[in-house]
């Protein structure tokens, strides 16, 4: 049995908009094991980044309900001073945009060094420097001694993202949260960075939460996948199951809407309507129902829950049993006539 690193139970993260709380993350239950990559997929506004921020305690004005157990200890709503002992040491985070994630006025070496200093102040300055140079080397930065003295604007995007990663792994964290780590990068750099994250994971035996909207990245990296829509998890499963037989209408729609460099398709699937804004999220019933209006209302559950369809494969709502794309429905009718 895999060792549980992070357990999220019924997490609800709400923000106040005009005197009313709206949940950006709603009833999320997840586990991340050691040496495992859990990918969280969804489009912007689905709550995946809000989830990552909740784990790291980075929200400043949010109401957090439920439990976030890190190695058995609940870290939801603990005092910042307590959280600061874990952040950067036991859990690290890689941010999306390497252009803004680094302090423009601080030397690269000092920025990485800060992560070490904060959790180990017994090291001398030169020992710390040595450690930083080793880290820079580890993330594949050429001439680390030189880069140590440089400022962020002197490095390319790919190099900066390596610096961000070096900062996140400075203390060999057990849990690494990567929030769209390659979205801002070119594909060749992306594949290098993804390889780097994978190697580091194997090296440190860490658990990784990979937040992404890119199903290609998921296919390359993930052991398990959670698909989020409108603040909720709509489907979870191991990567092979999910890619071979996705069940939830949203997951299936998502797969059909990506132009694929390796496959061929004439027309991309378009999901009807738009992702509702946080204030307008449907609070009851299946949240994806308004986007598949051709599916009979009776197909949806009143209060959709996650159903375990196979060991480890969960799908929210019963509508998946009745879901068909409009094209498929037409074809069937066509067949029926002939």
């Amino acid at each position: 049995m895999a060792e549980k690193l992070l357990e999220i139970k019924n997490l609800k993260t709400s923000f106040r908009i005009r005197d009313e709380y709206h949940a950006a993350v709603d009833d999320v239950t997840l586990t991340v094991n050691k040496n495992e990559v859990l990918a969280i997929v969804g489009e912007s506004g689905c709550g995946k980044s809000a989830l990552a921020f909740s784990i790291m305690g980075l929200h400043t004005r949010a109401k957090i309900e439920g439990n976030i157990l890190f190695k058995g200890e609940d870290i939801a709503n603990v005092a910042p001073s307590k959280l600061n002992k874990l952040r950067g040491k036991n859990m690290g985070m890689i941010f999306q945009d390497p252009l803004t994630a680094l302090n423009p006025l601080m030397k690269i070496g000092d920025q990485i060094g800060e992560a070490i200093l904060l959790h180990n102040n017994t090291l001398s300055k030169s020992q710390r420097r040595e450690k930083v140079v080793n880290l820079l080397q580890k993330v594949g930065i050429p001439r680390p001694e030189h880069v140590f003295e440089q400022y962020p604007h002197e490095l390319s995007g790919g190099m900066r993202q390596r610096v961000v990663i070096a900062t996140a792994i400075a203390n060999e964290p057990e849990l690494l949260i990567a929030d769209e780590p390659t979205t801002a990068l070119d594909v060749t750099i992306q594949s290098q960075i993804l390889d780097l994250i994978k190697d580091l994971k194997d090296d440190m035996d860490s658990g990784i939460v990979l937040i992404t909207h890119d199903l290609g990245v998921v296919a390359e990296m993930a052991d398990r996948v959670a698909v989020m829509y409108a603040g909720q998890i709509v489907e979870v499963g191991d990567v092979l199951t999910l890619f071979e037989e996705p069940l939830h209408p949203y997951t299936r729609s998502l797969f059909n809407s990506i132009p694929n460099a390796h496959g061929t398709q004439d027309k991309l699937h378009v999901i009807q309507g738009i992702v509702p804004a946080l204030q307008n999220l449907p609070r009851s019933g299946c949240r994806f129902a308004p986007r598949i209006p051709w599916i009979d209302e009776a197909a949806h559950e009143e209060q959709p829950i996650l159903h375990e369809v196979k060991p480890g494969h969960f799908v929210r709502c019963t509508c998946y049993k009745h879901f068909k794309f409009p094209e498929e429905t037409k074809e069937e009718q066509h067949h029926g006539v002939s």
Binding site: V187, T188, L194, D214, G216, A219, E220, V239, F243, A261
Partner: peptide, 29 residues
């Protein structure tokens, strides 16, 4: 371009595209 890239730069670029098939992970790597 996608099926028989000739220039080494193109080859590398096309190879870097993530494939939406977790089975091919090792092969692609």
């Amino acid at each position: 371009i996608f099926e028989s890239p000739q220039h080494i730069y193109t080859k590398r670029l096309v190879a870097a595209i993530p494939e939406i098939d977790p089975h091919k992970r090792e092969e692609l790597k």
